[in-house]
């Protein structure tokens, strides 16, 4: 079953590259804007073997990790406050949704004015990218705790802080995992937006650098790297964890 799926996916890839090669061979586009699959493969190979991509990736992951941990932390705090306090939620809940709906690239000019063309401004954009989704998820985690479970726990002598960490936190776990996955997805997008307009290092910066030198093969190679990482982390890690948690919490019938 899994093998069958994999072969279908591989077949699609071969098909796609063949068409690409065909279009290239016909020569409708200039080679400078339409590199061949081979050129892109070389660019990929060179990028990795020269170490350029690894350095860029390392820098990107540093920004991402710094940004996302901060985002998860701030998001959790905001979410807890809004979830626990009705007043806070009525006051600020709307604004949180508003903030979440702002595309992260919008923060880039603001970040540059605040921090200049530094890595800090990239991290800042990543933080803003991930914070609000996480806050929204933590808030719904708190708001959706079954009051019946809380009542039951109280009759078993579980109260206060113990109630919080033995019932409320585990009850919200599916929401937190979803929050982390979404925060990652938004932060990853924000990271690229921020790095594109930064002075490096980073994957997004390398992308713009390649563009400045009209290296379409490198541009496509980097886009492929970005896509592969995004898909791998989302499908390979977060979706799996999320599924397992949902199953364990009985939210997924199977």
């Amino acid at each position: 079953m899994n093998f069958k799926m994999l072969s279908k996916q591989l077949l699609f890839l071969v098909f796609f590259i063949t068409i690409w090669q065909l279009v290239y061979s016909i020569g409708i586009f200039e080679a400078i804007v339409f590199p061949s699959p081979k050129n892109v493969a070389f660019a990929l190979y060179n990028g990795f073997s020269s170490g350029d991509f690894l350095i860029a990736l390392g820098a990107s992951f540093k920004h991402l990790l710094l940004g996302i941990t901060t985002a998860l932390f701030i998001g959790t705090v905001i979410g807890l406050i809004l979830g626990k306090s009705k007043v806070a939620n009525e006051t600020a809940g709307m604004y949180l949704i508003g903030m979440q709906s702002i595309p992260s690239i919008v923060w880039v000019p603001l970040a540059i004015m605040l921090f200049g063309f530094t890595e800090s401004s990239v991290v800042f954009v990543v933080v803003l990218g991930g914070t609000f989704v996480m806050a929204l998820q933590v808030r719904s985690a708190i708001q959706n705790i079954s009051p019946q479970l809380v009542r039951a726990a109280k009759t078993m002598g579980v109260n206060g802080i113990e109630l919080f960490y033995r019932v409320e936190i585990p009850a919200g776990m599916p929401h937190y995992i979803t929050g982390i996955r979404l925060a990652w997805a938004f932060s990853w997008r924000a990271l690229m937006a921020g790095e594109l307009l930064s002075n490096g290092p980073g994957l997004g910066y390398s992308l713009r650098y390649a563009q400045d030198y009209a290296r379409m093969d490198q541009v496509i190679a980097i886009i492929i790297v970005i896509g592969v990482i995004g898909a791998t982390v989302d499908h390979g890690i977060f979706s799996k964890i999320e599924r397992n948690v949902m199953k364990r919490w009985g939210l997924l019938k199977q």
């Binding site: 019946q148 479970l149 009542r151 039951a152 109280k154 009759t155 078993m156 002598g157 019932v167 009850a171």
Partner: peptide
């Protein structure tokens, strides 16, 4: 509430 009174609820209340 306290553990000196054990309650079995009308609706299931397991974790």
């Amino acid at each position: 509430p306290g553990p000196d009174r054990g309650m079995v609820f009308q609706q299931p209340s397991l974790l």
